[in-house]
C-alpha cells in the first residue's frame, strides 16, 4: 500500500470515529503529537503528587488524611496508565522522564504554584481537579484507543477528587471566620492559575488546529476554559466564596460568563520554568529517581535470584 493510500485510510477512520490502535498505520506527526501530549499529561499526574503529598502528614484529621493518601495514590496510577499509553506508541518511558527532568518536556503549569495552607488542598481538589476533569472528559473521545481508554479509567476514578475537595472547602466555609478567610485566600491564589491550565488562547495555540482535525483534541482550549468558568461560578456561590475577577458576569447574549483576560505574561513565565516552584518540583523528581534507583536494582537482582532458584 502506498503512503498516500495509508494516509487516506487513516483519515477515513478518523472521519468515521473509528479509534486508531497501536499497530495501525498513522502519520508520524500524529504519533509525535500524541507522545508529546500524553507524556505531558503523565508528567502532570506525577508532579501533581508533590504539592499534595506534602500535606499528607499535616492533614487535620484521620479521615482527611486517608482521603488525601488515596487521592495521591490515584495520581500515581493515572501517571502509569498514561506512560503505558505512550509506550504503545513506541516511546521509551525512561527517556520521557529524562525529558521532563531536563525541561525539554513540560507538565501542567499549575503544579509550579505552592500549596501554602490546608485550604489550598481543598481548592486544588475543587478547581485544579475540576479543570483537569473538564479536559479529561473531553479526551475520553480522543481518536487514539489506548489514550481514550486511559482517560475513561482516569475520569471514573477522579470524580471523587473534585468532590472531596469541595466537601473540604464547604467545611472551612461554614467554619470560623479565619477558616473562611483561609478558603477565600486559597481561591484568590488558585483561580487564575486554574484557568491557565487550559493552555494558551486558541489564537496562540500552536498545536490546536491539527489536533482538532485528527480528533486528538475534541474541543479547543478556550471552549474548555469557558465551560469550566460556566460550571464553577455557581459552585463558588454555594461555598460563599468570591471569584477574584471584577469583570466576571453573565452574558445573556452569548449564554456564557464573560471574564477578564488572563495574565499571559505570568502563564509563559511559569511555562518557561520561572514559576514559584519549577526548580523545586524538578529537584524533587530527580531526587526520587536517584534515591529510588537502588530499590529498582535490588528488585531486579531479587527477580534474577528467584528465577535461578526456580530453574535449579
Amino acid at each position: 500500500m502506498t503512503q498516500a493510500e495509508q494516509e487516506r485510510r487513516f483519515l477515513d477512520k478518523i472521519d468515521r470515529e473509528i479509534k486508531i490502535e497501536p499497530n495501525d498505520w498513522m502519520p508520524d506527526e500524529y504519533r509525535q503529537t500524541l507522545i508529546r501530549q500524553i507524556s505531558q499529561h503523565a508528567h502532570s499526574e506525577i508532579v501533581g503528587m508533590l504539592p499534595e503529598g506534602n500535606w499528607i502528614t499535616r492533614a487535620p484529621n484521620l479521615r482527611r488524611k486517608a482521603v488525601l493518601l488515596a487521592k495521591v495514590q490515584d495520581e500515581a496510577g493515572h501517571g502509569l496508565y498514561l506512560y503505558s499509553a505512550t509506550e504503545t506508541l513506541g516511546a521509551d518511558r525512561e527517556q520521557l522522564m529524562d525529558d521532563m527532568h531536563s525541561g525539554k518536556a513540560k507538565y501542567s503549569s499549575i503544579f509550579n504554584y505552592p500549596a501554602l495552607t490546608w485550604a489550598d488542598i481543598g481548592t486544588i481538589g475543587w478547581l485544579v481537579d475540576g479543570a483537569a476533569i473538564m479536559n479529561q472528559v473531553a479526551l475520553c473521545r480522543t481518536s487514539y484507543g489506548p489514550y481514550a481508554r486511559a482517560m475513561v479509567k482516569i475520569c471514573k476514578e477522579e470524580s471523587f477528587h473534585q468532590r472531596q475537595g469541595y466537601e473540604s472547602l464547604m467545611k472551612l466555609c461554614n467554619g470560623t471566620p479565619q477558616q473562611k478567610a483561609m478558603a477565600q485566600d486559597a481561591m484568590n491564589r488558585f483561580w487564575w492559575p486554574a484557568l491557565m491550565m487550559f493552555g494558551p488562547s486558541d489564537a496562540e495555540s500552536t498545536h490546536s488546529d491539527q489536533s482538532i482535525k485528527w480528533k486528538i483534541k475534541r474541543f479547543t482550549n478556550d471552549e474548555l476554559r469557558q465551560s469550566f468558568v460556566d460550571a464553577t461560578v455557581s459552585q463558588a456561590e454555594i461555598l460563599g466564596l468570591t471569584i477574584p475577577d471584577p469583570n466576571l458576569k453573565w452574558n445573556e447574549e452569548r449564554g456564557h460568563y464573560d471574564f477578564s483576560e488572563i495574565n499571559w505574561e505570568e502563564f509563559w513565565q511559569v511555562v518557561k520554568g520561572n514559576g514559584p516552584c519549577n526548580k523545586e518540583r524538578i529537584a524533587a523528581r530527580l531526587k526520587a529517581k536517584q534515591e529510588g534507583l537502588w530499590v529498582r536494582e535490588a528488585a531486579n537482582a531479587f527477580a534474577k535470584k528467584r528465577a535461578m532458584k526456580k530453574s535449579a
Partner: peptide, 22 residues
C-alpha cells in the same frame, strides 16, 4: 492495561495496586 515489573510476582502485586484499587 500494562505495567513494568522485574518478575511475575511483582507484576501481580503492582497490578493489584494499580488496577484494583476499587
Amino acid at each position: 492495561g500494562s505495567l513494568r515489573a522485574p518478575d511475575a510476582t511483582l507484576a501481580l502485586e503492582n497490578a493489584r495496586d494499580v488496577y484494583t484499587r476499587r
